Amino acid sequence: MKMFTSVPDVFLYRDFVDFRKSINGLAAIVEQQMRLSALNGSVYVFCNKGRDKLKILYWDKTGFALWYKRLEKDTFKWPKKLEQQSMNLTEQQLHWLLNGFDVLGHQAVSYASVAL
């Protein structure tokens, strides 16, 4: 499923985030630490310390939306050596990240089976 008809600016927050934070806490990170407007329609991507969960926050002109994704058997390839607080991603890099690829090195995630 596509979230957007056209993907706006995408910003990846470098540091790991406490995933007890929801919309208000993540919007505060965008405003205070990233020094960006949470209301400008951009997409903000956050990762937990275990790197197996992502949260995506965006404003869609009627309110905030928060997407959550959890990997079952692997971890997200989160960029480690960023000089800045955030990294701007292209639409393709966002899709790579959501599909388990390294946005910088393109390392694929592979699954053998799903344990339920």
Rank of each mutant, 00 (worst) to 15 (best):
Y111F: 14
H106Q: 11
S86V: 06
Q33H: 10
I29N: 02
L57T: 02
E31R: 01
E83M: 06
L54W: 06
I56H: 01
N40W: 00
S42Q: 04
F19E: 13
G63T: 06
V30M: 00
Y111D: 15
K69H: 10
Q84I: 03
D18Q: 09
E31N: 04
S6W: 04
K80V: 08
V17D: 07
S42D: 11
H106K: 14
L97P: 07
D102A: 04
Q84C: 10
T75K: 14
N99V: 01
K2V: 09
Y44C: 05
A115I: 15
D15Q: 14
L71P: 09
G100P: 07
W59Q: 00
S86Y: 14
A28N: 04
V109S: 15
M87C: 14
K55F: 08
N40C: 01
M3N: 06
V109Q: 11
K2Y: 09
G100W: 10
F76Q: 11
A108D: 07
I23A: 03
D52I: 06
C47M: 07
R14N: 08
V30G: 00
Q32D: 13
Q92N: 14
R51W: 08
G100S: 14
L66V: 01
P79N: 12
S22W: 03
A65P: 01
R35D: 07
E31F: 01
F19D: 12
R14D: 02
R35C: 11
E83P: 05
L89G: 09
K55T: 07
S22I: 02
K21N: 11
L39I: 00
H95N: 14
P8T: 04
L12H: 05
M87K: 15
W59G: 00
F16C: 13
L82R: 06
G25D: 03
L98T: 12
F16R: 11
T62C: 06
K81C: 02
Q92W: 10
F76K: 12
L89H: 11
A115Y: 10
L104F: 08
S113A: 13
F64D: 02
